[in-house]
Amino acid sequence: MLRPEPSDRVRPRPATFVAPGAAPSAANHHTGSFAGLPSAVAALAGAGGISDSELVRRALAGQHDPFAALVARYQKRAFWIAFHVVGRIEDARDVAQESFVRLFRSLEKYDFARSFYTWFYRIVMNLAIDHLRKIRSGAANSLDDIPGGLADSREAPADAPMELEEQNGRVWQILEKLDPKFRAVLVLRDIHGLSCREIAPILKITHATARWRLHKGRQVFREHWERPSGGEA
């Protein structure tokens, strides 16, 4: 029997992905410290008693700091989700920034009965997948020609063996080849730890479809991974 998954509203599932360099968060989708931000914004962002919905409400009333606090809460998550989908730091920054601008513009459409992060992740995911498709359609940007894929933009710890770096490069190469719809589910479930119940509304698909895509995505990823390196091209 599959584990019954709680609905969004009952319990925001702790994300399993810990952003490198960010303090892990126990029970929230927003991660980490708010260093370098104005103290009022940092205080709002870090206030456990103030929900995301409350911040939206205050932002709608015309205050600036609550929206800045929402950005502080979600910018790392937005960046990392975008990064794992598009695979490039600069692109991920663009996607995250555009997501917040979209969020700001559509703030009054927010349905307070639904969870904020589902709504916001949907914005991020849509933009990231669009961006990925654009990258792939541009022949000049084809990543299939780059040996090692995205390994050049990533840095392994100084003491890490070369092997690990190569391994990570291969993982990114495989992710690059994965259909965006499989990649999106794989990123959200296996990297960011969201449940299929949470993923379904984010991607606007049914729970069954989310599960099928996850299963299929894992299968395709594994097939590529277990293929000898030479057969990866």
């Binding site: 992905f17 810990v18 490198p20 360099g21 960010a22 410290s33 260093a35 370098g36 931000l37 800045a68 950005v71 502080a72 910018q75 790392k76 960046f79 990064f83 794992h84 730091i89 920054r93 995250a96 920034q97 933009s153 990533r154 840095e155 392994a156 710890p157 690990l164 391994q167 990570n168 993982v171 990114w172 794989l186 990123v187 296996d190 990297i191 990823f221």
Partner: peptide, 21 residues
């Protein structure tokens, strides 16, 4: 997959996120 996703990225740190904010 997880290890690759969590590997450190050059230039992604608190300073980058402050600038991004």
């Amino acid at each position: 997959l997880r290890a690759a996703a969590e590997a450190a990225c050059r230039g992604v740190d608190e300073a980058m996120f402050a600038a991004m904010h």
